[in-house]
């Protein structure tokens, strides 16, 4: 049981978070080494776009949109936010200039950790609802419909619902702070 908890939950969580930290440091080091620090300055744009794009899953989950396989969209959400966060972290670099963008970076970091916790909980929920599969099959649903029904049941399970109560406010704080940073850049930077 202990081994399963370690292998199934703690290890993937630690690896993904550790990888994010290591990739940030490596990216920052490489940009400095190759004299490409200016690239880091603009990495915030694709990073933000990736994070925004990955929110399509959230829209699908709330049924604001109806197309796309939810399982694949969740994977895209996980990967897009991880990669987008990596780009934003490299963009933030090690330079401390203003408080607002740093608060946004911290909020994003907390958001990533919260997301990884959610991923862990979802994995647990999925195992829990496997028993439901047979019930859906007996109802005569197709294989795809059974998969989707099991998936939605898993994401709606108690623990996940509780987690979402934390994850969404963190995301709102992050997005407002990031928006403040983006607006200030648009306002004061010479884009033209």
């Amino acid at each position: 049981m202990k081994s399963s908890l370690w292998r199934g939950h703690v290890l993937p969580f630690t690896v993904l978070l550790g990888l994010l930290a290591a990739a940030t440091l490596a990216g920052d080091y490489l940009l400095h080494r190759l004299d490409l620090v200016w690239v880091g300055r603009y990495l915030g744009i694709p990073g933000t776009l990736l994070i925004i794009g990955s929110l399509y899953y959230s829209a699908r989950k709330r049924k604001w949109v109806s197309t796309g396989d939810p399982k694949s969209l969740l994977k895209m959400h996980e990967f897009g936010t991880w990669l987008g966060s990596l780009m934003v972290l490299i963009h933030a670099g090690i330079h401390f200039n203003a408080i607002l963008p740093w608060l946004a970076t911290v909020a994003m970091g907390v958001n990533v950790i919260s997301g990884l916790v959610g991923k862990m909980l979802l994995h647990q929920s999925r195992q829990h609802v496997q028993g439901e599969r047979e019930r859906f099959q007996l109802r005569g649903l197709s294989k795809t419909e059974v998969e989707q029904a099991v998936f939605w049941d898993a994401v709606a399970l108690g623990a996940m619902a509780q987690w979402r109560k934390v994850h969404i406010p963190i995301f709102i704080v992050f997005s407002v702070l990031a928006l403040g940073h983006i607006v200030s850049i648009f306002l004061f930077w010479g884009w033209v």
Binding site: N97, A98, I99, L100, P101, L103, V173, V176, L177, G180, H181, S184, F188
Partner: peptide, 20 residues
């Protein structure tokens, strides 16, 4: 909280959004 941050940004723009 977000309102407080917005007020701080307008009161201390050099600290909140100024690039150094």
């Amino acid at each position: 909280n977000l309102l407080v941050l917005a007020v701080l940004t307008f009161a201390y723009p050099h600290l909140m959004v100024g690039p150094g």
